[in-house]
Design a protein around this nucleic acid. Structure first.
Length: 641
RNA sequence: GCCCCCGUAGCUCAGCCAGGAAGAGCGCGGGCCUUCGGAGCCCGUGGUCGCGGGUUCAAAUCCCGCCGGGGGCGCCA
């Protein structure tokens, strides 16, 4: 581990790497060196990538296939493996075994346990400095402030928050940001409705929920008016149906707005006018927009508070426009001759830039046709992506960030690509290359259809309420905790988070309560329970003493020792791959291994003092890892459940 | 139509980026409770890695083509 550069990112370990990692790297370097001696140009990193866990314990704990090098050297794989085997050593390795072209290593579990257990009971086990104190920005949640946060935003928020934690743990300085998209058409529609209605959210209702209703109703009335004007029978029918549905749910709001948003008026123009005035900074309009959006954000913050997520910086899209940053971008584009008229608006045509080299560097798929990006509407206002260009530059320049990670639904892949291309075209090449679209797929609940236009939403507030209700029933009877309320909260929220971060982001999720709240396996409650159980043992048995533990008996608990020793590799991989699910998968398997041990081995009651101390150390390591691992996923680990 | 993502055991998923020796859990069948928290444990069951080609000593992994599911192709975001 290199020396920390930021005082607040100091790893607690002294010199050197974690035991397992140190051994693995030493072996890799040894193998690479052996191969270099034979004339091959091989790096430690290349070897490291190929080192795998053999399929069976009998083959070894760590291994590598040397076929490709044998081929390059024109020798038999087995012979090469045997020769290299003699040249590679580390004090934590007690045996080497060659099987075919594989070179496998066995750890000396006693020695590994001595080191790994000492490391694992340290407060900051699994912390790294691979980020070297460099800055990264993670933008997440960034929901449109026109309706409550829903299940999709929840996935976004939990993934984003977990990435922040994982990256910080790996030594990056991370800033999280929420982009308040207050200049889009949707907010203008909401404000339009509010102006017509002539009032803001009532005290007794959560503001984001109330505004969500107003937004749905206004949008429906506006769309209906448009359909009538255009004489589109089909659309008319559809929107009328939506309106009827909304009227059943929220008669008051619909009735109040129906009077004021009449089909014969030109609402489109009025809304465009509003947007324009807001963009120009018209004081009167500004006041209303800001008040409405602030109200909705208050609702967001309340929800985020419930699930324990906060962001460092809240950025207003409108500030970007008013500060002139957006205009500056447009000027730059003009000067560079990038702006072309496209159907009456101003756009960047990317075709001159789209060569294979650029595609590769900006991760744009080979076959993807990228349409021109419109920067300025014909009425002179700007669009979301235009402002996002300015925002991206701001994120990089304000923080000196090495990379900016945008957690954004995969539906927005194309605009994100256009954004990178626009940055590239404008000459912000480093930013373009280091802007990461962390895309995630949708979440669905069987039997519940979300429909924005129909005001049908699976809100995060509802999810939390529902989870708490369900958890309460399960916990109340059995709980040993005094503060059952807090436990219910931690378990309910934890279960939701785990369900949404334990699956890789690119996979769609089908949300099923039976799985989310399955206390038996692969869920936050299962892991929390395992943690509480481990802590419970320590309460009874006390903490283990390193100087009294019989490490020579560690071999018997090899599975656990190995797992404990591997934890830092997992936290590192999760950070490098931006993969919270790796933590989840690991913790689940650690819990399985521990529960097996727990059942077979008395710990606190173990009569042999040396063995008892060893076991207590193992239990303490598990508790610590469980807690730290869950924390990286944003999940609390109560001491009692 | 074009493009992107996904397709691994009955179910939920890991492994795919950096090719090397098919993995978990659930479910199902059987067993274990006077024991530190049974929200548990043990044994067993289960796969032409969507299909077809190709590259390779070696393909779930890379390449090409198809099939199925989802998403995207707006002066919306």
């Amino acid at each position: 581990m290199s020396r920390p550069k930021n005082s607040f990112e100091v790893p607690s370990l002294g010199e050197g790497l974690y035991a397992y990692s140190e051994a693995k790297e030493a072996l890799a370097e040894g193998i690479a060196e052996s191969l270099r001696k034979r004339g091959l140009n091989v790096s430690k990193e290349e070897i490291l990538r190929q080192m795998v866990k053999p399929p069976s314990e009998e083959f070894g704990d760590l291994g590598i296939g040397l076929f490709r090098y044998a081929k390059a050297l024109r020798v038999k794989p087995q012979e090469l493996a045997e020769e290299i085997s003699k040249e590679v050593n580390h004090y934590l390795i007690k045996e080497k075994k060659v099987i075919g072209g594989y070179l496998n290593f066995f750890f000396d579990i006693k020695k590994l346990a001595e080191r790994a257990l000492r490391e694992a009971i340290e407060k900051e086990y699994g912390k790294w400095d691979v980020g070297e104190g460099k800055v990264r920005v993670v933008e997440h949640t960034s929901a449109n402030p026109v309706h409550p946060l829903h299940i999709g935003h929840a996935r976004n928020m939990f993934l984003g928050d977990s990435l922040v934690r994982i990256l910080r743990n790996a030594g990056w300085k991370v800033q999280s940001r929420f982009y308040i998209n207050d200049m889009g058409r949707q907010v203008a529609i909401l404000v339009y409705g509010i102006m017509k209605l002539g009032k803001r959210a009532p005290e007794e209702e959560k503001p984001d929920h109330w505004y969500g209703k107003v937004y749905s109703v206004t949008n429906t009335l506006v769309e209906l008016a448009r359909a009538i004007k255009e004489g589109d029978e089909e659309e008319m029918k559809e929107w009328q149906e939506v309106l009827n549905e909304l009227e059943e749910k929220w008669p008051e709001i619909v009735n109040a707005l129906k009077e004021k948003i009449r089909p014969e008026e030109d609402h489109e123009r009025a809304i465009s006018e509003l947007m324009k005035r807001y963009e120009e900074g018209d004081e009167e309009v500004k006041k209303i927009f800001r008040k409405v959006v602030e109200d909705v954000l208050r609702g967001f913050r309340e929800t985020m508070g419930r699930v324990g997520v906060s962001v460092d910086v809240w950025d207003w899209e409108s500030d970007l426009v008013w500060s002139g940053l957006v205009r500056k971008i447009i000027e730059e584009a003009k000067e560079k001759g990038l702006l072309k008229e496209h159907k009456g608006a101003l756009a960047i045509d990317f075709s001159p830039f789209l060569n294979d080299e650029v595609r590769k560097r900006l991760k744009i798929p080979k076959g993807l046709e990228v349409p021109p990006l419109i920067l300025v509407r014909s009425d002179g206002t700007t669009l979301y992506t235009t402002r996002d260009i300015a925002y991206t530059i701001k994120k990089f320049e304000e923080t000196g960030a090495e990379k900016v990670i945008n957690v954004i639904a995969s539906e927005q892949r194309l605009p994100q690509i256009q954004l990178r291309l626009a940055l590239w075209a404008l000459g912000y090449k480093r930013y373009a290359e280091n802007l990461i679209h962390y895309a995630y797929e949708m979440v669905t609940i069987p039997g519940m259809k979300m429909s924005g236009r129909r005001g049908r939403m699976i809100t995060l507030d509802w999810l939390v309420d529902e989870a708490k209700k369900r958890v309460e029933e399960l916990v109340k009877e059995r709980s040993e905790a005094q503060d059952v309320e807090r436990v219910v909260e931690a378990v309910a929220v934890g279960a939701l988070k785990y369900a949404l971060v334990s699956v890789s982001a690119e996979k769609p999720i089908t949300f099923k309560w039976e799985e989310v709240l399955n206390f038996n396996t692969n869920s936050a409650p299962y892991l929390q329970y395992t943690h509480a159980r481990a802590v419970g043992i320590l309460r009874k048995g006390g903490k283990g003493d390193l100087s009294k533990a019989s490490f020579e008996k560690a071999e018997k608990y090899k599975n656990l020792i190995m797992k404990i020793a591997e934890f830092p590799e997992v936290t590192k991989a999760a950070a490098l791959d931006l993969a919270p699910e790796k933590i989840a998968v690991y913790l689940n398997s650690l819990a399985d291994t521990f529960n097996e041990f727990y059942h077979k081995e008395p710990v606190a009651k173990e009569p042999d003092e040396g063995l008892r101390n060893l076991k207590l150390l193992i239990v303490e390591a598990i508790a610590n890892i469980m807690k730290r691992g869950l924390n990286l996923l944003g999940i609390e680990a109560p001491e009692r459940m």
